[in-house]
């Protein structure tokens, strides 16, 4: 089953001086899984995610992403992951097509591949007529969907989504999650952070971080029953209430 695991973390820790941002977190994520990474602000999610993406070097512990070591093989890791942040992060003064071409370009896709991918993506998102419009002029929902499509453009093994649906209306959020399911179906592992508890229910498994530690890790159904809670909201509240850190 080892091959099935695309993220393996063992006691992964990050210290900044005396402050332990991420404290010995241990977990695995399987191929094609949608893994929810929850926690209050300041719980250490971002730090953990930065380590997994190869942006920041861990203080101790072990982790492999798509089989590559987070200490030594960050270049390989970067080729195999996609990333979408909470801030909208395409270029507003580039057109839809130029954005796709640019990100295809820096991931080193061939011209033909970029061409066919672009057409396919425009078709799927229904953005054919908007292809030559500046991204800045699109509504936020479209931008987020485009942003996600660009993050998986190079067919990564894992895609990290950092609060991807912040500020997006419920209908678009629903559509967005349809896209996440499609990606997971095609074998892409989805690692997602969110503050929306209804979204947490869409995940296969959820972890909740409190004060740098990973308090729980299970399916939403199991979590609710073990906390005797009716919704994920309650589970989260029970856990996060005990947090000492906050923002």
């Amino acid at each position: 089953m080892q091959d099935d695991k695309v993220i393996v973390c063992e006691k992964l820790t990050k210290r900044f001086g005396d402050f332990i941002a991420t404290n010995e977190i241990t977990f695995d994520v399987h191929r094609g899984e949608i893994f929810g990474f929850l926690g209050a602000n300041g719980a250490g999610k971002t730090t953990a995610m930065r380590m997994l993406c190869g942006l920041s070097s861990p203080s101790s512990g072990k982790a492999t992403i798509a089989g590559y070591d987070v200490y030594t093989q960050t270049e390989q890791i970067k080729k195999n992951i996609g990333y979408m942040s909470q801030k909208f992060s395409l270029y507003e003064n580039l057109t839809v097509r130029e954005n796709i071409e640019f990100f295809g370009g820096i991931y080193g896709l061939s011209d033909e591949r970029i061409q066919s991918k672009t057409e396919e993506l425009l078709q799927r998102l229904g953005l054919k007529t908007e292809a030559n419009k500046l991204v800045g002029s699109l509504p936020l929902g479209w931008k987020q969907k485009l942003s996600f499509s660009v993050a998986v453009l190079h067919e990564p093994k894992i895609v990290f989504l950092d609060e991807p649906t912040g500020g997006v209306d419920p209908v678009t959020r629903r559509q967005f999650w349809d896209m996440i399911y499609q990606a997971a179906d095609s074998g892409i592992t989805v690692f997602v952070t969110t503050h929306y508890m209804d979204e947490a229910e869409y995940c296969n498994r959820i972890s909740i971080m409190v004060d740098g530690r990973m308090e729980v890790l299970d399916t939403p159904t199991n979590l609710k029953s073990s906390f005797r809670a009716r919704s994920m909201d309650e589970v989260f509240y029970q856990l996060a209430r005990g947090a000492k850190r906050g923002d």
Partner: peptide, 13 residues
Amino acid sequence: ESGTMEILLVSPF
């Protein structure tokens, strides 16, 4: 500021 630097840093570029 726009957050695109992060995206660039996680890319293999």
